[in-house]
Computed example of a mutant assay.
Amino acid sequence: MTRRGEVLGLTWSDVDLDAGTLRVRRTVQKLDGAFVFGEPKSARSRRILPLPVVCVDALSRQPEINRGRAKGKAQRVPGQPTDLVFVSASGQPVDPRSVNRAFDRLLVRAEVPHSRVHDLRHTCATLLLAEGASDREVMELLGHSSIGITMNTYAHVLDESKRRMATRMDGLFGGDG
């Protein structure tokens, strides 16, 4: 699961739809009203990620979406790669705050309590751990520099996981579970 700035900094040269992967190698933020392209947070943040089919399908439709937004000559900002995956109607990077606003509208429409876009990383990590992914696999996916960061920040233990652990203990010690 990538960070918002990593997604907004993706270029088509970072995406391999045939292999179903993307490479994280830059970020974009908006600081003092200006877009700033930079390096990912840490060396481990620079990574190649496998994509679920649903993401490959969505990304395969993105060029058509971008063509629909192209109105005249693109107005790129300094340092902007020419092949950004996600661009605004003007051809500039998508403003991270616009992502937040769109996410908020989706939550309201779905009648889901407010949360932040970044909270999707928490949810992803928790669900993957609950599905049996190893700490190391989740750490690599999230691009953390250590397992400690992953486990201390994202490994919210679910009630179902606690019940499974209790059942395992029963099996080890001859309980009736």
Rank of each mutant, 00 (worst) to 15 (best):
C124N: 10
A125T: 10
R109Q: 15
V94G: 07
K30F: 11
G132E: 10
L106R: 10
S98L: 12
L107G: 07
C55T: 08
A43I: 14
T123K: 09
N100M: 04
G143I: 10
E64A: 14
T167H: 00
Y154L: 14
D170E: 15
V15T: 02
A130C: 05
D170Y: 00
L22P: 02
S161M: 08
R76S: 01
L10K: 04
P81W: 02
A133G: 13
R4K: 13
L10W: 04
V36F: 02
A155I: 14
N100C: 11
P63V: 05
T167E: 03
W12N: 07
V112A: 10
A74N: 01
R121T: 14
R136L: 13
A102L: 07
A166W: 01
R61D: 12
T167V: 05
R121M: 11
A166G: 14
R121C: 14
V7Y: 02
E6G: 06
V36K: 09
S98W: 04
A89G: 02
T123N: 03
G79Y: 00
R105Y: 03
E160P: 04
G20C: 09
F173T: 00
N152Q: 14
G143E: 06
T11F: 00
E140Q: 10
P93D: 02
D16T: 12
R23M: 05
G5Y: 08
L8G: 04
F37M: 09
H122C: 12
G72F: 05
S145D: 06
P96F: 13
H114M: 14
L107S: 03
R116P: 12
H114C: 13
R109I: 14
G38S: 07
T167A: 06
T150E: 04
T167N: 03
R101W: 04
F103Q: 01
